[in-house]
């Protein structure tokens, strides 16, 4: 079973293992949730209110998620996307395979430390404006598996999260409610505030 490639698979494995250990060392505290939308001082200027309204309407009416189903919650995400609970009526039926074309990352399922560097990389590859929705208790806090040696206790250790949807797995209606809350959050955004 000899590898014909330039790198040996053991070298590749060791390099990735080092990256994972470094990420564990850096992620001991959760990242605070983005709460700019709560600020009272950022009153938008009168000049840009209509621009804001149109931009926010455009952004929230066609949020394109990136394919990031990890575990069981991915099946409820797929069930939301097919014809019974139709996510296409919100403009979100295009699950993009490439993060460069997506706005929203629905983290559905348990995140393990081995997968965490890939999550960070996909998040960094998404262009602004971008949002993260943590679906299911495993993404919120580790869930049923919290305390295990290889489970990240909550996605907010790695990326900042905008909406949390609890459930194990959450029903498609619950996910749609969470997406509705995300739309309300986007509606309060303004281009006058730097992200």
């Amino acid at each position: 079973m000899e590898m014909m490639s330039v790198y040996s698979s053991l070298e590749l494995d060791r390099a990735e293992g080092l990256a994972i250990d470094e990420l564990i060392a850096r992620s001991q505290q959760p990242i605070p949730d983005p709460d700019r939308w709560l600020e009272e001082e950022r009153r938008p200027n009168v000049l840009i209110t209509s621009v804001d309204a149109v931009l926010n309407w455009g952004r929230r009416s066609s949020v394109w998620p990136v394919n990031f189903g990890l575990a069981c919650c991915a099946f409820e995400m797929i069930a939301t996307a097919v014809s019974r609970f139709d996510i296409a009526r919100f403009g979100m039926e295009l699950f993009r395979a490439s993060p460069r074309q997506a706005d929203l990352m629905i983290v559905s399922g348990t995140l393990t430390w081995k997968m965490a560097p890939q999550l960070k990389r996909i998040y960094e590859q998404m262009p602004e404006p971008k949002w993260v929705l943590a679906m299911g208790v495993c993404a919120i806090s580790g869930g049923t598996f919290a305390g295990s040696y290889s489970v990240v206790p909550g996605v907010n250790r790695i990326v900042p999260v905008d909406v949390y949807v609890p459930g194990c797995p959450p029903r498609p209606e619950a996910l749609l409610y969470g997406i509705g809350m995300l739309h309300q959050k986007i509606a309060k955004d303004s281009i006058a505030v730097k992200r």
Binding site: M3, T112, M115, S148, S150
Partner: peptide, 16 residues
Amino acid sequence: DMEPVVGYLHRGIEKL
């Protein structure tokens, strides 16, 4: 050549 790499969803169910 092809090498499958698994373990990205290893949650330690047997230990839990």
